[in-house]
Simulated scan of single mutants.
Amino acid sequence: MKHITLGVLLFATTFVFAQENSEQPQLEDSSTEEAVSTDSSVTESSATDDSALAQTATLETASEQSPADEALPERTLEGYRIIRIQKTETKAFKDSVKRAERQIEEDKKPTIPFRFEVGLLASIGAKELFGSDRYAYYDRDRTSKEIEPVTLFHGYPVNVGLIATIPLNEATVAIKVGALFEYTNLIHNEDFFLKTNDSDESPWFEEKKREPEHGNISQMRVSFPLLFALKGRTTPAMFEVGSKISIPIQDKYKSVDFVDHNIRPAVDAALLIGGSFIINKYFTLMTHIEAQWSEIYDDELFVGVSDISLLGIHVGLVFTPF
Rank of each mutant, 00 (worst) to 15 (best):
D200H: 02
E201W: 13
E201P: 12
S202P: 02
S202M: 03
P203I: 07
P203E: 00
F205G: 02
F205L: 03
E206L: 03
E206W: 01
E206C: 01
K208D: 04
K209M: 02
E211M: 04
E211T: 10
E211F: 04
E211H: 07
P212F: 01
P212G: 02
P212C: 00
P212M: 02
E213Q: 08
E213R: 07
E213D: 05
E213F: 04
G215S: 02
N216I: 11
Q219Y: 11
Q219H: 12
Q219G: 09
M220K: 06
S223T: 11
F224S: 07
F224D: 03
P225V: 11
L226G: 15
L227R: 08
L227G: 05
F228V: 15
A229D: 11
A229Y: 06
L230G: 10
L230Q: 10
L230S: 13
L230M: 12
K231E: 09
G232C: 05
G232P: 03
G232D: 06
R233H: 06
R233Y: 07
T235L: 15
T235D: 14
P236H: 14
P236N: 15
A237P: 14
A237T: 15
A237G: 12
A237N: 12
M238R: 14
M238E: 14
M238G: 14
M238V: 09
F239A: 15
E240Y: 04
V241E: 00
G242H: 12
G242E: 01
S243W: 06
K244R: 11
K244W: 05
I245N: 09
I245F: 13
S246V: 09
S246D: 04
I247H: 11
I247R: 08
P248M: 11
